[in-house]
Amino acid sequence: MKWIAAVLFAAMLVLLPSVAGDFYVNLASQILIAAIFALSLNLLVGFGGMTSLGHASFLGVAAYISALLTSRYGFAHGPAAIVSIAGTTAMAAVFGVIALRASGLGFLMITLALSQVLWGLAYRMSNVTNGDNGIAGLTRPMPFGISLDSAASFYWFALAVASVSFLMMTTFVSSAFGSSLKGVRDQPRRMAALGFNPWMIRWITFIYAGFWGGVSGLLYVYYNKYIHPTSLSTTSSAEALLGVIAGGSGTLSGPAVGAALVLLLKNYASAYVERWNMLLGLVFLFIVLVMPTGIVPGLSKLLNLRRGSR
């Protein structure tokens, strides 16, 4: 049963552009990007117990590096992508060292402060980042000479990257290292007594999450062909965190579902009202107060109950 459902779901994803119009295909691309981003954040929040409010740093910095290198310094997309991901990952390594001096709320505050500093920098270093105007007129890469300018071709590109990232993050979580990470989340002292190095485990996870955050940032800037400081803002980090928590932190598919819901809500709501931030705030309150464990665990509990009663 599960296999059939998975194959059907995969087929549906691949064939989407042949049944849906460009508007929906583009929406689906955005969802895939948000899902990669949320999954990478979930490695920290759900599996590592490290609640970060600065994950947008990685998305934004990867996007800015790629945008600057291709538009200003004449880099081709390939090398620009490599430098961008490498730079973002290196930044994650440094941020990790700083933020992991603390845990719990201290960690949250440091990640928030670090990302706010980057946001302020993107706004104020206007001779480099173009400040509030953002960097426009960017191009999409042409992997193997294939243009990604149509909605469908970009969607397939994003789907391929998202599949690889989902597979790799899922393997990561179920691996020996993933078990160590969950152990360190639950009983750090015990894990240390068993021979695990809790700090190193958290740090490597932070870097890995930063890496995938960077990948989602690259897709983000390819999709939008534009980058603005808001991509580095607390709102951007908070949207992803809301997706993770709404979907169910610490589950494999929850954050992807949550990210999709947040994105759909944002798209539909902004068609009717301008007040996205207020809505985002209200949804935060609603989710935390009403379904703190998230939608996916809630639904699977419900399904199990129904199965159990049969």
Binding site: F172, S175, A176, G178, S179, S180, L194, G195
Partner: peptide, 24 residues
């Protein structure tokens, strides 16, 4: 799983992140 963590703690494979734990 609890006892496995005890075993894993002293083995180099605790750093392995590309294979599921069940591989071992």
């Amino acid at each position: 799983h609890n006892v496995t963590l005890g075993l894993l703690g002293l083995r180099p494979s605790r750093w392995q992140m590309w294979r599921p734990l069940s591989y071992y």
